[in-house]
Design a protein around this nucleic acid. Structure first.
Lengths: 253, 253
DNA sequence: ACGATCGTTGCAAATGTTGCAACACGACCT
DNA sequence: AGGTCGTGTTGCAACATTTGCAACGATCGT
């Protein structure tokens, strides 16, 4: 849309291949040397390119600084929220978002069910680590030794007959969850409540958060809830993509 | 030099602070909404910015990819990293690696302290040039006229009573550092934080990077930290040797 | 249903960008 | 030295690109 900016930005991937001098840049851009010079000067002033001792240009450190600052300010919650709302509008059930922090798993966002019968939970409150579907996903992604150490440190309360009984069972469950890429909690915490959950991954593929849909079985049976799995996974994937800055282009052309 | 590109690039640091909508961008740029829209579109086409579900803009994936390539070109980092880790394993404190570029000194790598009390710093962020130990080493190696010119252009913020007060004091400190081949920062930036640093040299003997060990004095006193100096210098020398292709033979023949 | 807020589009004016040609500088060769 | 090649740099005039405007649309909340 903007020719000048378009040309300037085209220089960056070109330099990413390796240092280049003015002539080479102008030729590959298809513009006059003087034009390339002025574009490079502007990029230089912004620290996006750097001029090395032999006068050739390479990518500058400011690029690195920007990226670093951006990831620090990234907030999963902010990005995920609209997606959670959309999912809730589609299925009507309670939607949760959780992260792993300091050996606890915490809900950091929630969209309430639109059915009259709701499950109890509170944002900011630690979840039942050994049974919650989101906890399984978050812990399943830990490095093996850490995962094992944590599993052995945990208590395994018998909330219901279907609760995870001990560390061995928990580790087996984590392995399964890690393999299949999603998790459930079928009455492990409250007899009558089921959840399905899917992981949200950062640009490097590591699980940074997990989301779930929960419903009491007076509203839908476990089987019915499971039919929502593809939708939940699609939503989680969309959040992952957006979080890593790879979402579908939304600009009308 | 190029107004259009200049404006477009100014959008990036602005978005690095966090997502912003069209209106906010146009106001902070001081241009009309339609102008900002077109610039953002162009950035968008190049993947430098991304539009999230709520229509606000943030930095895009291409920027991260470029940043990645930019640091890969800084190959000191690759070579140094294992040494930094080893040093951290030996002493437990925060270890930094920094380079000088375009009149700024930037951290390009960091290994976190294993003590609970940590100092704050960020990779990619410019350091406090007038007080940081690594900055002293990098600037001390500049040719005399450049060094003087730079020293006189700098601001000398009084972070603490022990901060470098003015250009004269700074140049004297640089001379000392150049002479002794190592540098310290004893509470010059944060009252309670001390650093010792050593230079990494290329094959021609010029300082190409600097590394430091930092610790708050609630963990170790300045005197105790100074006992680490020989270790820091040995590590820096090892990196220098490896960088200039003189490292310890990895495949003894 | 209405007003408010924010994003989007077409257009005409003019500002900013472009390519040119000439110059500057250094390296290299005869 | 002088000359030539290869590059980077600058001033300028022509004009293409960008700009701000104003009007339109979409969405939201009361």
């Amino acid at each position: 849309m903007s020719q000048t900016v378009d040309r300037a930005l085209s220089i960056l991937p070109l330099l990413a291949e390796g240092p280049a001098n003015l002539e080479q840049v102008s030729v590959r851009l298809g513009v006059h040397k003087s034009t390339a010079l002025r574009l490079l000067r502007t990029l230089h002033e912004h620290g996006m390119v750097y001029r090395q001792a032999d006068q050739r240009y390479r990518l500058g450190a400011r690029l690195f600084a920007l990226a670093q600052q951006a990831v620090e300010n990234l907030d999963v919650r902010e990005i995920a929220h609209p997606h959670l709302v959309e999912l809730n509008e589609n299925c009507g059930h309670t939607v949760h978002l959780a992260v792993h922090e300091e050996n606890e798993v915490l809900y950091i966002d929630k969209v309430e069910s639109r059915y009259p019968v709701r499950m109890y939970s509170r944002i900011g409150k630690p979840v039942a680590t050994t049974v919650a579907a989101v906890a399984k996903l978050l812990l399943a992604d830990l490095p093996e030794p850490e995962r094992r150490a944590l599993a052995e440190k945990l208590d395994y309360p018998r909330y219901t007959p279907r609760s995870t009984p001990d560390a061995t069972a928990f580790l087996a469950e984590l392995a399964k969850v890690r393999e299949q890429g999603w998790a459930t909690d079928l009455g492990g915490h409250e007899e009558s409540i089921n959840c399905v959950a899917a992981p949200i991954r950062g640009a490097d593929g590591r699980v940074i958060a997990a989301m779930s849909v929960s419903a009491p079985n007076v509203v839908v049976t476990a089987d019915e809830l499971l039919t929502l799995l593809p939708l939940v996974r699609r939503t989680a994937d969309a959040i992952s993509r957006e979080y890593s800055g790879n979402g579908p282009a939304k600009h009308p052309e």
